Simulated assay, not measured.
Amino acid sequence: MEGLKECVANLVVYLHPSKAKCPNEAILTELSSMLFTYNETFEGVVLAYDPGNCSNLAKILPGIHPYFGVKLTARILLFNPKPDMLLEGEVVKITPHSIHAVVLGFSAAVIADEDIRGEFKYKSKHGKEVYVSKSHKKHKIKVGTILRFVVKSFDEEILHLSGSLLADHSGCARWLDKNSDKWSQADRF
């Protein structure tokens, strides 16, 4: 899936003097506070970290509460989707005017009616809502489907995605993987 990247970061973590006895625990707490929030320095949402080398030396900062800074190197996994990237998410809700999905278990994605290609028709039978392809009856999008879509925009503040199903290589990921010859031929014409 696009939008994920790993980076190595050289960080300085500032700790309160009361944390001097167990700095490793305090460092992990500080790193954990960055999880699932957009970080402008790294230009992405921090999903995971692996604290690497930690310096044995700390620099005491002057002030009322003299914090000390500890240098460390950490590997960080980031999520930063850009427009036109291809992402996958699990469909959680379908309405006549939109499809709602969750990406990586934390980021909400919405595909509005105008971003769903005309090939898909909304149907509701026995209380179950589904989008079905007019040209390929087995290509269905329903709750629980892994949906492959193109990113239109990403709101970094609330971690919300806006997507599109206008491209031929978007839709139900399972169907697309099984029938790649059918949708790739449509791209050629």
Rank of each mutant, 00 (worst) to 15 (best):
I116D: 05
V103H: 03
L15Q: 11
G163I: 03
S107P: 06
S124C: 12
L72C: 11
N179A: 09
A58M: 13
L4V: 10
L31D: 07
I76H: 08
Y49V: 06
Y131G: 02
V103Q: 04
G144F: 07
L78K: 07
V130Q: 09
V151M: 05
K21E: 13
T145M: 04
K82D: 06
K128Q: 12
S98G: 01
L35F: 07
K5R: 15
P62N: 10
I99R: 04
Y67C: 08
P66N: 15
N53P: 00
T73H: 05
T29I: 06
K21C: 00
E119Q: 12
L77M: 09
H160F: 14
K71V: 01
M34S: 10
L57A: 12
L35E: 03
L28S: 05
G118C: 05
G105R: 11
V103M: 01
H65Q: 14
Y122Q: 03
D181G: 12
V12M: 06
V8P: 00
T95M: 09
G163V: 02
L165H: 04
V110Y: 02
F149A: 02
D115A: 14
A58N: 08
T37G: 09
A74D: 01
M85W: 08
A101G: 05
K182S: 10
F120D: 06
S133N: 11
G3W: 09
S135F: 09
K128D: 01
P62F: 10
Y122S: 03
V132N: 10
P23E: 06
F42R: 06
S153M: 01
Y14D: 03
T41M: 11
F189K: 15
A167S: 14
F149Q: 02
I99W: 05
E6G: 08
K5P: 00
L161Q: 02
V132W: 00
S153L: 01
K82Q: 14
F189A: 13
P51F: 00
L86I: 14
I64D: 15
S180T: 11
H139V: 04
P83L: 08
L31K: 06
N53W: 11
P83V: 03
P83R: 13
F36W: 10
P66K: 15
L161S: 04
Y131I: 04
V130A: 02
V92W: 00
K71E: 13
R117H: 08
G63Y: 09
V102F: 07
K125T: 08
N56A: 13
A48F: 12
C172E: 12
